[in-house]
């Protein structure tokens, strides 16, 4: 059965880059969110067993999404993909329960290795 996956990023280019970096043979049902609020709605709708999450987003940022998921004990596997790569951002994201922090520009092999580590590939 296809794995429900949501890509949350306000940039259309970034969403496209993440899609391109995913393995071609991966059986995933991909949805997109353009802000944190949409990302939370996708999780609630069962569309995000895996959530690729940007940090800088309008309405509700990635940190708030992580906090909300943590508060609700959601089982979503969150992989943060961010342009803000400062040590504090990485530490905060990890403390909020993200599975992995990947830097932009996204490297396809790093994303695929991460998916292997989660046992999704």
């Amino acid at each position: 059965m296809a794995i429900p996956v949501t890509i949350a990023d306000d940039s259309a280019l970034s969403r496209k880059m993440i899609r391109r970096a995913l393995p071609a043979h991966w059986d995933a049902e991909i949805s997109e969110a353009t802000n944190g609020r949409e990302a939370i709605l996708a999780v609630e709708a069962g569309k995000a067993d895996v959530l690729f999450l940007d940090l800088q987003m309008p309405e509700m940022d990635g940190y708030q999404v992580l906090q909300t998921l943590k508060d609700h004990h959601e089982k979503t596997v969150v992989i943060v993909i961010s342009a803000d790569i400062q040590p504090e951002a990485v530490a905060l994201v990890n403390s909020l329960g993200a599975f992995r922090f990947l830097k932009k520009p996204l490297v396809a092999s790093e994303l695929q290795q991460t998916l292997t580590e989660v046992g999704l590939l």
Binding site: S11, L13, S82, A83, I85, Q86, K104, P105
Partner: peptide, 26 residues
Amino acid sequence: DALQELMNISMGQAANALARLIETRI
């Protein structure tokens, strides 16, 4: 959108370099 995102990524790298230099979050 594409140009903004590319600049965003580059600026993120610049901020990281600067943040490490001054040991302060930017």
